[in-house]
């Protein structure tokens, strides 16, 4: 298993990298624990992958999107599908996680 991105998510990440003027940065996907609020997904750009990161590449070489996940987070994210949704009520990255037992209504945090 691995980490999957939908086409919409790939083009969204590419667009954000353009707007931030950071085309060479990698897209970091991870989880963070916030006290007892469960675990929540975390996305950001980073200048480069860290040593023990899992690295996934998407898209053609000239418009490549690199996603990195740290080792601890990967335990919880293996098999995840990341999508980009633009709907009236919610615009943002959506995470479909086969490991999550319950997700909150906004889809941004989950418990295992």
């Amino acid at each position: 298993m691995a980490v999957e991105l939908t086409e919409r998510a790939i083009s969204r990440i590419r667009e954000l990298a353009m707007k931030r003027q950071t085309p060479d940065h990698v897209f970091r996907l991870g989880i963070r624990g916030g006290g007892c609020s469960g675990l929540s997904y975390y996305v950001d750009f980073a200048p480069a992958a860290a040593e023990k990161d899992k690295v996934f590449n998407f898209g053609p070489d000239d418009g490549k999107v690199t996603v990195v996940v740290d080792r601890k987070s990967y335990l919880f994210l293996n098999g995840i599908v990341v999508d980009w949704k633009t709907e009236l009520m919610k615009t943002g990255f959506e995470f479909i996680n086969p490991l999550a037992k319950t997700s909150c209504s906004c889809g941004e945090s989950f418990t295992v």
Binding site: L75, G79, V112
Partner: peptide, 10 residues
């Protein structure tokens, strides 16, 4: 492995 842990936790 992670799959097993995930299943366990789930």
């Amino acid at each position: 492995d992670a799959d097993e842990v995930g299943a366990q936790m789930g």
